[in-house]
Design a protein around this nucleic acid. Structure first.
Lengths: 126, 126
DNA sequence: TATATGTTATATATATAATATAACAAGTAT
DNA sequence: ATACTTGTTATATTATATATATAACATATA
């Protein structure tokens, strides 16, 4: 699992880490049971603070993507699921992004194709 | 054009305003040439500061969704378009959101259907 | 002339993001 | 036992982003 941090981005570092781990799970690069690098390890790898990494990990724990094992540290889990509440949030997140693309003149199919392309990269469920 | 601001949201007020105006354009509620309420008017309607509204308007101006007319104030325009740069940003924005849904167990079709539903509400181009 | 536009400038308050240190508890390996 | 690595907690500091408060200015309009 290789992470890339963009320090010029306006996306907070902890959000970049959090997103890339979720993407790793979607892509199948990160599987249930996989042990994440320790917060100190990741922090030193990127030259950032330990608390920044911990914030990302803790958010992922709250959302059900990671568990803390007293021996192994943070471990990939799959307790996150898509309840009605999440679906509502999903729509709220997608709406402005899709509206932006559409208002710039893109066709519905064009936009949907991009969504499909992204989804196609994700690992098929077994 | 009726805007709704959620003061408890962690989405900045200026972002909420900006997003809802773009959504208004996508929905066909806001059309090219429409005059927006003045920044002071909108600010007083919601009990917020004039600069918060101005920030939203100015960002929309930068992106090509609004123009400033010396007499009419901020006016809806359609200079925004989807260049390669925007498409790249679009993918970067969509990726983590779709990955999240997929990692929570949603099927590709399920996710695509939600995108379709949102897009279907947007006004067909003439 | 009074009024309504947007614009610019300053200052202030609050929250968020990120860092810096330090210390602690629990488990592991030597 | 000792040293080392986990995560955890606490405190403080810095920088940036968000939002507000006032004031003044230029331009156009009624």
């Amino acid at each position: 699992m290789l992470l890339k941090i963009e320090f010029e981005s306006d996306v907070p570092i902890y959000t970049q880490i959090k997103n890339q781990i979720i993407e790793g799970i979607a892509l199948g690069i990160l599987k249930e049971g996989d042990e994440m690098p320790s917060i100190r390890q990741l922090a030193s790898d990127f030259g950032i603070n330990l608390h920044t990494v911990k914030k990302a990990y803790d958010l992922l724990k709250d959302e059900g993507f990671l568990n803390v094992h007293r021996r192994k540290g943070y471990v990939v889990t799959k307790n996150a699921f898509a309840d009605d509440n999440f679906i509502e949030e999903l729509k709220k997140d997608l709406q402005p992004i899709l509206a932006n693309a559409y208002s710039r003149g893109m066709m519905q199919d064009e936009i949907l194709t991009i969504c499909e392309e992204i989804l196609r990269k994700f690992k098929n469920k077994e």
